[in-house]
Design a protein around this nucleic acid. Structure first.
Lengths: 336, 336
DNA sequence: ATGAAAGCGCTAACAT
DNA sequence: ATGTTAGCGCTTTCAT
């Protein structure tokens, strides 16, 4: 491996000069030596040693990104947007899954810290919302020695940077969409009730129902777990209830519901209208139709990066709270 | 940030001793000081500085993984398997997308090298198979200063480590499956003809057809590009041809074909039998059925890691060529 | 059983 | 316009 010394020796100048030139801080170096340095560096295939540079500069030019699961399309798309942004600034991204486990989340934060990342983008596990875990996480995050942005899943407290989607608005849009099409008896298949996203989406549902003066029947508000099977199971329970529409709190459960509906030879949207949440892009390809609330993960990633890199650069703490708006995507799963 | 010096001072020993103890190379240190060192390190929340350690050890404890696109389910699952394996050995993974662009691929290899990764797992872009690019890539890879394993998409040459699936076998299995169900006129929607995967899958098709003494009609062997739209378009062209079954070289195109079939009010498997490739897991949830060739990405990742970390550890070069077997997944899209 | 000291490759303050 | 030097935090050889 060729070092800065090798280049210096070959050119016949000091390492300082080489360093200065190669880092483009070379106002004071003559064009001639400058040109020569670039040439020799290229000839010798010199690449700066990152470790050495980090040791001096106290920057790793690396950020951490923790997400629940890269296999989830929403998060893989989020990663991509973040990776692009970071790379354009000369940063790399260390990606870790927490598998929606609080314990794993704690562990990977430690791992990343030991790598001396310059900043952290964090999507916490759903489990972390459980009361017994929240305090531990908040304590940990408040004592982080580096800038932090909570992404998508945030805490209420105002002492964290956060970028997230307005889940209540999403719930409202979905419900309103069904109401607009004449539905009055609208069931919900929610997420786990302790998750913020589910809580907020449900609030949106209430808001829309109340606004339209519709009565809410708690018998058709069932709790799911955001997985396919629970959507199917809950829909099964709803089949003999009195309702015409279902708001599933994510697309995976919505597809579970569709499966259940098909199994009794009924049809969407003829027998049941259905709205999901996530706008799982791949689904539109698979010849299935599902109206859904769409969250633009690219923008989510960009906003998170803006905040993080601004803090990294200016070392100022200027807490931000960015709430993004989801939109309704229509595809044909809602009928009167 | 507390350093090893701080710990040494607090305990009242030299940095050497602290380093030795904390790295468990402490055969020669007394139990007492040893215990104290651990205590103080914990109290002071000491974490070793990675950059400093790397500078000395010449290891970054980081590997690179380059894939075409993390949004592709096959690759996100591959990443997960690799990340797990690497983490269990104390390594981190720097993940980069090449977006199936040769140029980007070259760039990210450079970027990773400048980070002094200890090894590289590489899934090249399909574009790289073009003749004008192959030489450049081979030259680059042969001169890599670190261990390399080509994953999934490999070169024929024997001077690279490689782990991949037997695409010919996959093509054979898919075609044989259709033949076994009585089909004689079997169309193909292939990948781009310059890609190795497509070439091999087609060879498998020929092998199965020949074995069964079936005549091959080149009019129903159409080239796609592995995307949904091309599956739809090619199927459209096939609709008025004389055939009963289609082998699409990936699931995305298979779903495109299904869309096309549905649009003329025909049905799978009643009017056309269909086999895909990839066994796109999510699809099984979306109430769609598609027989498909399945490649276990977890095993792919593990085998790649085994080779890479063995080379990193032993610094021996012992070229390996691991060919994994795909399997047929049946789901109901094939009929007599 | 423990310490002193050199040096990894680089940056930057200070000289010249 | 260019060089000298200290030092970042750590590991490791060699003394004691």
């Amino acid at each position: 491996m060729t070092t800065i010394k090798d280049v210096a020796k070959e050119v016949g100048v000091s390492v300082t000069t080489v360093s200065l030139v190669l880092n483009h801080k070379s106002v004071r170096v003559s064009q001639a030596t400058r040109k020569k340095i670039f040439e020799v560096a290229k000839k010798l295939k010199y690449t700066p040693n990152f470790a050495a540079r980090s040791l001096v500069s106290k920057e790793s030019k690396t950020i951490g990104l923790i997400i629940p699961d890269i296999e989830n399309a929403f998060f893989s798309s989020l990663f991509k947007s973040i990776e692009d942004y970071a790379r354009s600034l000369g940063y790399m991204v260390l990606l870790m899954n927490n598998n929606d486990s609080h314990q794993t989340n704690i562990e990977v934060i430690d791992l990343l810290l030991s790598r001396h990342i310059d900043g952290l983008l964090l999507v916490i596990s759903n489990e972390t919302y459980l009361e017994k875990y929240q305090e531990e996480m908040k304590h940990l995050l408040l004592n982080l020695p580096i800038p932090l942005v909570m992404v998508d899943r945030v805490f209420d407290e105002s002492f964290f940077n956060k970028v997230y989607f307005d889940n209540q608005l999403g719930g409202y849009l979905a419900t309103k969409h069904l109401i607009n099409h004449g539905h009055k008896k609208i069931a919900c298949i929610t997420g786990p009730k302790e998750t913020k996203s589910s809580e907020k989406r449900l609030m949106g549902y209430y808001q829309a129902m109340n606004e339209a003066n519709l009565t809410i029947n708690k018998d058709i508000l069932l709790e799911g777990d955001y997985h396919f099977d629970s959507g199917k199971k809950r829909m099964n329970e709803l089949l003999d209830k009195d309702l015409t529409a279902v708001f599933a709190f994510n697309d995976l459960m919505a597809y579970g519901a569709i499966r259940s509906i098909h199994e009794v030879n009924k049809n969407v949207p003829k027998d049941y209208s259905l709205v999901g949440y996530d706008h799982f892009l791949i689904a539109t390809m698979l010849d299935s139709q599902l109206d859904s609330i769409e969250q633009n993960s690219k923008i989510l990633g960009e906003e998170a990066c803006k905040i993080l890199f601004s803090e990294i650069k200016h070392k100022t703490e200027n807490l931000q709270d960015i709430c993004l708006k989801p939109v309704l995507f229509r595809s044909g799963s809602v009928n009167i």
